[in-house]
Measured scan of single mutants.
Amino acid sequence: HNLTITQGKLFFHYNPKLCLSEIHKMEEVSGTKGRQERNDIALKTNGDQASCENELLKFSYIRTSFDKILLRWEPYWPPDFRDLLGFMLFYKEAPYQNVTEFDGQDACGSNSWTVVDIDPPLRSNDPKSQNHPGWLMRGLKPWTQYAIFVKTLVTFSDERRTYGAKSDIIYVQTDATNPSVPLDPISVSNSSSQIILKWKPPSDPNGNITHYLVFWERQAEDSELFELDYCLKGLKLPSRTWSPPFESEDSQKHNQSEYEDSAGECCSCPKTDSQILKELEESSFRKTFEDYLHNVVFVPRKTSSGTGAEDPRPSRKRRSLGDVGNVTVAVPTVAAFPNTSSTSVPTSPEEHRPFEKVVNKESLVISGLRHFTGYRIELQACNQDTPEERCSVAAYVSARTMPEAKADDIVGPVTHEIFENNVVHLMWQEPKEPNGLIVLYEVSYRRYGDEELHLCVSRKHFALERGCRLRGLSPGNYSVRIRATSLAGNGSWTEPTYFYVTDYLDVPSNIA
């Protein structure tokens, strides 16, 4: 807008934040220059609390790290170098490059900038070799853009010569660093050979998330399962459950009422301010606690030095998902009996873990797994792929695949051998790939016309006998059925096997 004052003059007093240069501009645009008398524009009460600059400061050096910015700028000295009290560095987070010096300023003089007072450097006698002032900004957020400017702080001049310097606002972004852990990993099994893994992005990506790394490792069953005799009275049979499938998407929606109208769909109840505040506090606490764990609990591995020492970490090797089922080394339970199943799973520490690289999504279907087997899954978020990966501390989750139908069934015939004193040795093959492992066998036998009897055969007993022995049988026709019990439950009964026990007292003698 054009402003013209045809008559009258300007009068400025007691404006401590208004620089004289701005008042002189007002004289020019209003056409009143030359009308004012000496005392109409006070030299001592206008701009006496402001830094009124008329020179431009330029930054000469900028260096960044993930949490620091090192700045240096060209030296500046007023005509009387004693008038320079120091520099004021202003900075704040700036997602967009549209910041002005006066953003967030209120009537009390406060604003949204963080201000650092910096002492002037030592003055050199040689004007050509003056030290460049600077400042190291610490405690910054990774991968965050900051708006920065600097200006001088000078003393009051009796001659009211307006001098000083100020830089333009520059924008500097800190470097990326390792992201925080992925949030809320959930693993479920939808079949006997697959596990579905879902997660949420890290709360602090500290860069642009480029991919996720998912490692999985087959877990050995508890050692007590191999040692305890679950045929003993009072000892509860062990059981394991597989990871249940995901709930429906509708039930997972946030901010939804727990109660549904019987007449149909209901609208979600909005969260109160107290609920939102509580969630923010919980989120802040979780982030602080995660940072504490990362800094205190997890110790970084030592990389190899120039002395030739090897990095103890196993090298990563990509495998196809079809090879995942046989990740671990199978060892027989008892070496003397080769027909026992290889369900003991000690994992070799030198073995390469299978892994998958996930790009542009937060889910993965891990296939080719062994049925009813526990897996430990390790999830890392990465925001750099080359020249070397920059990934987060791992988040861990466990899951067990679903049982395989008929995996616990005894394959092959049940054979028998009759000894003296009416002892019958029953023999059968253990299931080759049971659900988890076989903890015991149930032997059901009966003599024709009598009630059915049951015998429990422990895992250890089966390994020693290759089956079991029935003792003290009365003469007669017998039928026997056997079924295995694994961590997933009972298998199917075998087809009945028949044998006849004679009275050993009636056996004919070869003595003449």
Score class of each variant (00 low, 15 high):
Asn490Arg: 15
Asp229Tyr: 13
Gln380Cys: 08
Glu247Tyr: 12
Val365Lys: 02
Gln256Cys: 13
Glu227Val: 12
Glu495Cys: 04
Gly476Arg: 00
Ser367Tyr: 08
Ile276Asp: 11
Ser315Ala: 08
Leu487Lys: 08
Val423Ala: 14
Cys269His: 09
Glu217Cys: 14
Leu369His: 01
Lys317Ser: 12
Ala394Glu: 06
Ala309Gly: 12
Leu237His: 03
Pro332Asp: 08
Val297Lys: 13
Arg318Met: 05
Ser392Val: 04
Leu225Asn: 03
Tyr441Lys: 00
Ser248His: 06
Glu388Arg: 09
Ala335Trp: 06
Ala381Trp: 02
Asn255Lys: 08
Glu388Leu: 06
Val297Leu: 07
Leu225Gln: 10
Ile276Tyr: 11
Gly264Ile: 10
Pro300Gly: 06
Lys302Arg: 11
Ile209Met: 13
Val423Met: 06
Gln380Phe: 15
Leu455Met: 15
Glu389Arg: 14
Ser342Asn: 08
Glu350Arg: 14
Asn295Ser: 12
Cys456Trp: 00
Pro300Asp: 15
Arg218Trp: 10
Phe337Met: 15
Tyr504Arg: 05
Arg240Lys: 15
Asn360Val: 11
Cys266Arg: 09
Pro354Met: 12
Glu389His: 14
Arg471Ala: 15
Ser268Thr: 15
Pro244Cys: 10
Phe499Gly: 00
His371Gln: 08
Arg400Gln: 05
Gly436Leu: 11
Trp493Ser: 02
His371Asn: 03
Arg319Trp: 07
Phe419Leu: 09
Gly234Pro: 06
Val501Thr: 04
Tyr396Asp: 02
His211Pro: 01
His211Tyr: 03
Asn326Pro: 10
Arg353Ser: 10
Cys267Trp: 02
Glu290Gln: 15
Pro300Glu: 10
Phe462Glu: 02
Ser479Leu: 02
Ala309Glu: 13
Cys391Val: 01
Tyr445Ser: 03
Asn435Pro: 01
Ser274His: 14
Ser344Gly: 05
Glu227Ser: 11
Leu437Gly: 04
Ala263Ser: 11
Ala330Leu: 02
Ala309Pro: 09
Lys271Pro: 05
Trp428Leu: 00
Arg471Ile: 09
Leu470Lys: 00
Asp291Arg: 09
Ile482Gln: 08
Glu350Lys: 04
Leu277Asp: 08
Gln275Val: 07
Gly207Cys: 01
Thr343Ala: 14
His294Val: 10
Leu470Arg: 01
Gly412Pro: 05
Pro300Ala: 08
Arg318Gly: 03
Pro387Asn: 02
Lys233Arg: 11
Gln384Trp: 14
Gln256Val: 12
Thr307His: 12
Pro300Gln: 09
Tyr498Leu: 07
Ala407Leu: 11
Glu310Ile: 06
Ser223Val: 11
Trp493Tyr: 14
Pro338Arg: 10
Phe462Trp: 13
Asn339Leu: 08
Lys278Gly: 06
Phe215Asn: 09
Gln384Met: 11
Glu350Trp: 04
Asp385Asn: 08
Gly322Thr: 09
Ala381Lys: 15
Gly322Asp: 09
Arg218Tyr: 12
Thr272Gln: 05
Tyr445Pro: 01
Leu470Gly: 00
Cys468Asp: 01
Gln275Thr: 12
Val507His: 01
Pro403Gly: 03
Pro205Arg: 12
Leu470Trp: 02
Leu364Arg: 09
Thr241Cys: 13
Ser348Trp: 06
Tyr478Phe: 05
Gln380Asn: 12
Val365Ala: 14
Leu225Ser: 11
Lys361Cys: 09
Pro238Ala: 07
Glu356Cys: 11
Lys317Ile: 09
Ser486Pro: 00
Leu379Cys: 09
Glu389Phe: 13
Tyr498Ile: 14
Leu505Gln: 07
Asp250His: 08
Cys231Arg: 02
Ala336Ile: 09
Gly264His: 11
Pro270Gly: 01
His454Leu: 10
Asp408Thr: 01
Arg286Asp: 14
Thr343Pro: 08
Leu280Ala: 15
Gly467Thr: 03
Ser315Gln: 10
Phe289Cys: 04
Ala335Arg: 14
Lys233Leu: 14
Val424Glu: 02
Asn435Asp: 01
Thr307Ile: 02
Asn383Met: 13
Thr272Trp: 06
Val414Gln: 02
Lys317Ala: 11
Ser251Gln: 14
Lys302Val: 06
Ala220Lys: 07
Ser284Val: 09
Phe289Val: 12
Tyr292Arg: 07
Arg318Asn: 07
Arg481His: 06
Glu433Pro: 02
Arg353Glu: 11
Gly449Trp: 02
His454Phe: 01
His416Asn: 06
Pro354Ile: 12
Lys406Thr: 11
Arg483Trp: 00
Thr307Leu: 13
Thr333Asp: 12
Val443Asn: 00
Val423Thr: 14
Ser344Phe: 09
Pro508Leu: 06
Glu378Val: 10
Glu224Tyr: 11
Lys406Ser: 10
Asn422Leu: 08
Phe499Pro: 01
Ser305Ile: 04
Arg316Trp: 15
Ser509Ile: 15
Leu228Tyr: 15
Asn490Cys: 11
Val324Asp: 04
Val439Ile: 08
Arg319Leu: 07
Ser479Gly: 02
Ala394Asn: 08
Cys456Leu: 03
Arg313Ser: 09
Val501Gly: 00
Thr210Ser: 15
Phe298Pro: 04
His371Arg: 12
Cys391His: 03
Leu455Ile: 08
Arg218Phe: 04
Ser474Glu: 15
Thr288Gln: 14
Thr307Tyr: 14
Phe372Val: 01
Ser398Val: 11
Glu351Val: 10
Glu227Gly: 14
Glu452Lys: 07
Asn206Phe: 13
Gly472Ser: 08
Glu227Tyr: 06
Gly264Glu: 05
Ser344Asp: 03
Val345Leu: 13
Phe462Ser: 04
Asp291Leu: 08
Ile418Tyr: 06
Ile438Ser: 03
Ser248Glu: 03
Phe337Ser: 08
Arg240Thr: 13
Ser444Gly: 14
Ser398Ile: 10
Glu404Thr: 07
Asp506Gly: 13
Arg301His: 06
Leu280Pro: 15
Met402Ala: 08
Glu433Leu: 03
Arg481Thr: 11
Phe499Ala: 02
Val327Trp: 15
Ser283Pro: 08
His461Gln: 12
Val397Asn: 11
Pro431Phe: 02
Pro270Leu: 04
Gly467Trp: 01
Ile377His: 02
Asn326Val: 04
Phe462Asn: 03
Ala405Pro: 06
Ile410Leu: 09
Glu417Cys: 04
Ala399Thr: 09
Asp222Met: 06
Arg390His: 03
Cys231Tyr: 03
Arg316Gly: 05
Pro496Met: 03
Asp503Val: 13
Lys236Thr: 07
Ala335Asp: 15
Leu453Pro: 03
Ser283Leu: 05
Glu356Ala: 13
Arg240Gln: 05
Asn360Met: 14
Asn360Gln: 07
Thr343Glu: 12
Val457Lys: 05
Glu378Met: 06
Tyr396Ala: 08
Asp323Asn: 09
Gly325Lys: 14
Arg447Asn: 04
Glu217Asp: 10
Pro354Leu: 11
Tyr445Phe: 06
Asp506Lys: 04
Gly449Ile: 10
Arg469Lys: 03
Asp408Phe: 00
Val365Leu: 13
Ser474Tyr: 12
Ser344Cys: 07
Cys231Lys: 02
Val423Gly: 15
Tyr375Cys: 01
Tyr448Met: 09
Pro346Ser: 13
Leu237Trp: 11
Gly489Ser: 06
Ser479Met: 04
Tyr259Phe: 10
Ser474Leu: 09
Ala309Val: 14
Pro434Thr: 04
Leu453Ala: 02
Tyr396Glu: 07
Val327Arg: 12
Glu249Ser: 11
Tyr448Ala: 14
Val327Asp: 10
Val443His: 01
Lys361Gly: 07
Thr347His: 12
Arg447Ser: 10
Ala395Gln: 13
Ala463Phe: 12
Leu473Ser: 01
Ile511Phe: 15
Val359His: 12
Val414Tyr: 01
Ser320Arg: 14
Ala463Pro: 04
Arg390Pro: 08
Ala394Phe: 09
Arg301Pro: 15
Arg240Pro: 10
Ile366Leu: 12
Tyr375Thr: 02
Leu455Gly: 09
Tyr500Val: 13
Ile366Lys: 05
Ser474His: 08
Ala395Ile: 07
Val334Thr: 09
Ala263Pro: 11
Cys269Trp: 08
Asp291Pro: 08
Asp385Gln: 08
Ser251Ala: 07
Trp216Tyr: 08
Arg240Gly: 13
Ile366Ser: 00
Asn255Ile: 09
Arg301Ala: 04
Val345Asp: 06
Asp291Val: 10
Val397Phe: 14
Asn339Thr: 07
Glu442His: 07
Val334Pro: 12
Val457Cys: 12
Pro245Ile: 13
Gly308His: 09
Ala263Phe: 05
Ser284Asp: 15
Pro238Gly: 12
Ser257Ala: 13
Arg218Pro: 13
Val324Gly: 06
Leu277Trp: 12
Val334His: 09
Ile418Leu: 06
